[in-house]
Nucleic acid binder design. Structure first.
Lengths: 348, 348
DNA sequence: GTGAAAGCGCTAACAA
DNA sequence: TTGTTAGCGCTTTCAC
């Protein structure tokens, strides 16, 4: 029964504890603690014996106890939507960024019966020390109350006041890149499907409008309502298809929306990019699929994750107080859905 | 400074504790604990005063301390892939199922630099009492070691031995449903794109083969290699398109794969369902998009989540020891991608 | 209906 | 290099 990990030194049932390891090696608990924290103050020999005993016992440090005692969780909570490919990219990038600095990630997915508020509550209960929000629509006032207690980074949304940091790409500039690209190809009739009231959509819309203006295409400016889903792109496309004259290019709210546009056009036998060029936004995984091959505006998820974690560390470990608004450059990624318009097309 | 929640009763910095609440009301900590656990033994009056004081202080129970003291986390760890729509459906359904029974969900996403092993380690460190795995390829032997210590439910994979439960749909039957449907429409030339070595794919392939056999179509049986991604569907479609004669129907490994098929065919001006019918598998969100409108085999994610959680409760709270293999019925969902083959087509 | 006291597994300050 | 001790915030006897 000596190696049975389900009965520990004191005869209790359950997983082995530090005490069990200490007892087995014949040293104090403190030493075991030292070893597991990689702290100095234990001989190489002891270290090795401790680790071996732990392995034999199947010992694993108990996070709950550590959190309680250290009075620090080193948890970063992440609020996000599993259904948005960009969010998934971001979350995947947050893991290594956080781990490199000794922090753990706790996920709080929202959607389908779990709203922002619930997710925040849960992350708070788990003693998260900071939070990264992506694509949430949580009210600013509500957020401010939480931000009093911990660092918060909102991805894509800038806030007033000193409590919430922002990491975002210059969305207006991104939209301008899209329009500039299309105009440089010769397009003039460029429609924008926008993201309704969702995060960043106002800036993208404004960037589109400004760019059109600057190119002397104010008269061609046209915004169709949409959101960040495939269905909205499909719906907007159907509206376009019902009109007597097609635009020569569509700039969609994001990649998912663009996907809806592409598929709807394909099924209507409209050739992309032959008849219509399409530009998305995000450069999420979907845009890179060989058969989508979408020209889009890249938001560097890895870099954003890095900056977000960095901003949190600055507050947590270096005492920064004032807000930061970290604005990254978007980049145009030209793929297969854009091309000069057909001569003789609707390009007035 | 009385209501300043950042300085508690004993002058320490940090979030308010139970002691702070107790001090403010002038009762013992025990009572506050009772109230927050909804345990009997406190007058309605006290109860109310405690709750009010807690609200004023912004008090929130500390999960780490609760876990430590109760010696139970009531956490269920979930290993999954954020990139598989079906997994996302499942995870979303696990939340309410677990909460209804007083359990919490802890997510361990895998992919992009985080393998199964790491995720499992993390969930163990957080004292998860049980785990649900979806779509993992973790080795059975490795899993068995973990399963000795806690209940494990593998979604979609059946295991030998008594330690791992399975919740799955009868995939062979699901595949048969797909083939039967196509045959009943008049199809004979039906190709299957399979899921390589991924979970459940062997059963689907076998179901396809058996159904073809039963319909006297053994000679038409044809399996193209693939996996559970859009790209594999696209690649297989390109192969099909390069042949002199098209099949009249394609049964894809899953919805994502089918999506790759649909888009590739559409771009090649092949009409679905006019020229080729397509059936997917999973009935994930993507299949329901209006412009995809995919005929598919439904795996009821909500029901599977419910059964998985139920299986865990049985082990955890009712001491079940022997393994359960819970097999659910798949269902055919007919949408817009299937139709009788054109007369005069390749239907030999 | 209420309170005092012990202790969950761990860390940190201090002593040896 | 190693051990002793106190206590993180909570729950749980047990007593009143």
């Amino acid at each position: 029964m000596d190696t049975d990990s389900t009965v520990n030194a004191s005869g209790r049932l359950g997983r082995p504890t530090m005490r069990d390891v200490a007892a087995r090696v014949g040293v104090s608990q403190t030493l075991v603690s030292l070893v597991f924290r990689n702290a100095p103050g234990a001989s190489a020999q002891t270290r090795e014996r401790v680790l071996r005993a732990a392995a034999e016992l199947g010992y694993r440090p108990d996070t709950a106890a550590q959190v309680l005692r250290r009075n620090r969780s080193r948890h970063i909570g992440v609020l996000f939507t599993m259904r948005q490919p960009f969010d998934v990219d971001l979350v995947e990038a947050i893991y290594p960024a956080a781990e490199r600095r000794g922090y753990h990630v706790v996920l709080g997915p929202i959607g389908a019966g779990r709203d922002d508020q619930q997710a925040v509550e849960e992350l708070l209960a788990y003693r998260s020390e900071a939070m990264i929000l992506s694509g949430t629509t949580i009210a600013a006032a509500q957020l401010a109350r939480v931000a009093d207690q911990m660092p918060i980074v909102d991805i894509g949304r800038r806030h007033t006041g000193d409590s919430v940091d922002a990491v975002r790409v210059a969305d207006e500039r991104g939209a301008r890149l899209a329009v500039d690209h299309l105009v440089s190809l010769g397009h003039r009739s460029i429609v924008h499907i926008d993201g309704g009231g969702l995060p960043a959509s106002a800036q993208r819309r404004r960037g589109y409008q400004q760019a059109m203006l600057r190119h002397g295409l104010a008269g061609q400016t046209r915004v169709l309502p949409g959101d960040y889903t495939e269905e909205s792109g499909a719906a907007a496309s159907r509206r376009i298809l019902n009109e007597e004259e097609l635009p020569t290019a569509v700039f969609a709210a994001n990649d998912r929306c663009a996907h809806g546009v592409l598929d709807t056009l394909a099924r209507a036998r409209i050739d992309v990019p032959g008849d219509i060029s399409v530009v998305g936004y995000d450069d999420s995984e979907i845009a890179r699929l060989s058969f989508i091959d979408l020209t889009t505006i890249r938001q560097d998820a890895a870099l954003m994750a890095e900056q977000a974690v960095q901003a949190i560390i600055e507050r947590l470990d270096h005492g920064r107080i004032e807000a930061r608004d970290i604005v990254l450059d978007p980049a145009l990624v030209v793929r297969g859905t854009t091309r000069p318009p057909r001569s003789g097309s609707a390009n007035k």
